[in-house]
C-alpha cells in the first residue's frame, strides 16, 4: 500500500500533465485538469518548505538538547531561523516591524546581515579560485594545454583590459574568439551536453511515471 499509492499518484499526475497539452483547456475536462494540477503543485511546494522548516528545527533542537559536538552552531541556526521567520509571519497590520515589507525586522535582517554575508561567502571564492588555478591548472597533457590556451583567450576576451590587449595583436581577434570559440566549439559541445541531459531527464521522468524508478520514495 505504501508503495502502490505513491506510484499510482505519480502515474496519474504524470499522464494527465503529459497528455493534457494535446487538449484545449476551454473545451475538454482533461485540458482543464492541467492548470488545476499545477495550482496543486504550487500548494504542495509550499508545504514542502514548511516540512523543511520543521526538519531543520527538529534536527538542530535534538543536537542542542543532547549537547552534541558543535551544538553551539545548531543553537545559532535555530535562533537565526526563528528571529528571521517569526516577525515576517506576523501580520504587518499589527506593527510595521512585522511582515516582510521595507522597514520590517525581516527586511532589516535580510538587507544588512543575510545579503552581505552571502555575497561575502561567494566573494571569497575568488581567493580560492586564484590559488587553485595557480596550483592545479598545469599543461600536463595535450588536452590540458588546449584547455589552458582556450581558457586564457576567453578570460582575456571577457574583460576590457584583455580585449584591449587582444586588439593590439589584431583588431578582429575578439570577434574571432566570439565567432569561433564561443559560437563555434563551445556551442557545439554545449548542444551535445544539453541534448544528452534532456534525453536523460525525459527517460528519468518516464521511469518515474511508469513506477520503475522508486528512489524518491526512499526505495532502491
Amino acid at each position: 500500500m505504501r508503495t502502490t499509492v505513491p506510484v499510482v499518484i505519480a502515474f496519474l499526475s504524470g499522464l494527465v500533465l503529459a497528455v493534457s497539452i494535446f487538449f484545449r483547456p476551454d473545451k475538454t475536462i482533461i485540458g482543464q485538469l492541467e492548470p488545476e494540477l499545477l495550482v496543486w503543485v504550487t500548494i504542495i511546494g509550499g508545504f514542502t518548505l514548511f516540512l523543511g522548516a520543521v526538519s531543520i528545527t527538529r534536527v538542530n533542537f535534538n543536537a542542542v538538547q543532547r549537547r552534541k559536538k558543535g551544538w553551539g552552531y545548531s543553537l545559532l541556526t535555530l535562533i537565526s531561523v526563528f528571529v528571521m521567520a517569526l516577525p515576517s509571519l506576523l501580520p504587518s497590520t499589527w506593527s510595521p516591524l512585522f511582515g516582510d515589507a521595507e522597514g520590517s525586522i525581516y527586511d532589516w535582517l535580510f538587507q544588512y546581515l543575510d545579503k552581505p554575508m552571502m555575497a561575502t561567502m561567494f566573494g571569497m571564492l575568488a581567493f580560492y579560485i586564484a590559488s587553485a588555478a595557480y596550483r592545479a591548472f598545469r599543461a600536463r597533457s595535450a588536452e590540458a594545454t588546449i584547455l589552458l590556451l582556450t581558457a586564457t583567450l576567453v578570460m582575456l576576451w571577457r574583460v576590457p583590459m584583455g580585449e584591449a590587449f587582444l586588439r593590439s595583436i589584431h583588431t578582429a581577434l575578439p570577434e574571432w574568439i566570439n565567432t569561433y570559440v564561443m559560437n563555434g566549439v563551445n556551442m557545439a559541445v554545449q548542444r551535445g551536453i544539453i541534448i544528452g541531459a534532456a534525453l536523460g531527464a525525459a527517460s528519468m521522468s518516464l521511469r518515474i511515471i511508469l513506477g520503475i524508478e522508486r528512489t524518491y520514495m526512499g526505495k532502491g
Binding site: 588555478a133 595557480y134 598545469r138 586564457t152 578570460m155 571577457r158 574583460v159 576590457p160 583590459m161 584583455g162
Partner: peptide, 24 residues
Amino acid sequence: GMDAQSLMHLLIIGLVLMGNIGYF
C-alpha cells in the same frame, strides 16, 4: 567593476603562467 575584473583576470592568467613555468 570592469577594472577590478580586468585586473583579476590578468592576475589569474599571470599566476597560471608562473605556475606552469615553475612546473616545467
